[in-house]
């Protein structure tokens, strides 16, 4: 137990905090994100992530949003397990035809008003997979999309910026 406490104490707070962090872009994006969420979502934006055919690269970077460096929860963003709790669907991947109905049903289960963000090149335009017998390509071919976040995969910072753009429109 002492070792754990010692390690926690020595590690300190790694979160790149708003007033004096190492990354000025992250600070700025974070501040804007928190402001926008406060204004439009009473300080709390619930995201349901849906992999609709991704190679899992995007999922790795979305996961990273929760590590100590980004700690996206401090800006009011949290990932929820059910679409019924979500304000926003963060969809990755080209929409595989096998995921098409599951994606649509997830969207239908999300209460209105609901937002859809297509994250990653595949979700934005089909990416490396495009449209085929097995893939519907961009998420916008299946659902109305409110914003896209390009990148293969988008970095955690790009993901935060992408979520931000939807708040500013």
């Amino acid at each position: 137990m002492l070792r754990i406490l010692n390690k926690i104490w020595k590690t300190g707070l790694i979160t790149e905090d708003l007033p004096a962090g190492a990354d000025p872009v992250l600070e700025q994006v974070g501040a804007q994100l928190r402001e926008g969420i406060a204004r439009q979502f009473q300080g709390s934006l619930a995201i349901r992530q849906v992999d609709a055919g991704s190679c899992n690269g995007c999922e790795l970077e979305i996961h990273a949003l929760n590590n100590g460096y980004y700690d996206i929860e401090r800006f009011g963003v949290h990932f929820v397990a059910s679409p019924r709790h979500a304000d926003l669907l963060l969809v990755t991947g080209p929409v595989s035809v096998h995921m098409e109905s599951a994606l649509r049903r997830t969207w239908e289960a999300t209460p209105e008003p609901r937002l859809v963000v297509a994250a990653g090149d595949c979700a934005a335009c089909g990416g490396e997979f495009g449209c085929s017998y097995a893939s519907r390509g961009a998420v916008s071919n299946v659902l109305p999309v409110d914003a896209v976040i390009p990148g293969c995969p988008p970095s955690p910072l790009k993901l935060m910026q992408g979520i931000l753009q939807i708040l500013e429109t």
Partner: peptide
């Protein structure tokens, strides 16, 4: 399983070497 079947084997056909390497790099992002 099979929900994220993206037709990788089929869309590989006709690619050149550089295109196949890019596709192979997205079979499993990790």
């Amino acid at each position: 399983l099979g929900y994220v079947h993206k037709g990788i084997e089929k869309i590989a056909e006709g690619r050149d070497a550089a295109g196949l390497a890019k596709l192979a790099g997205r079979i499993s992002g990790d």
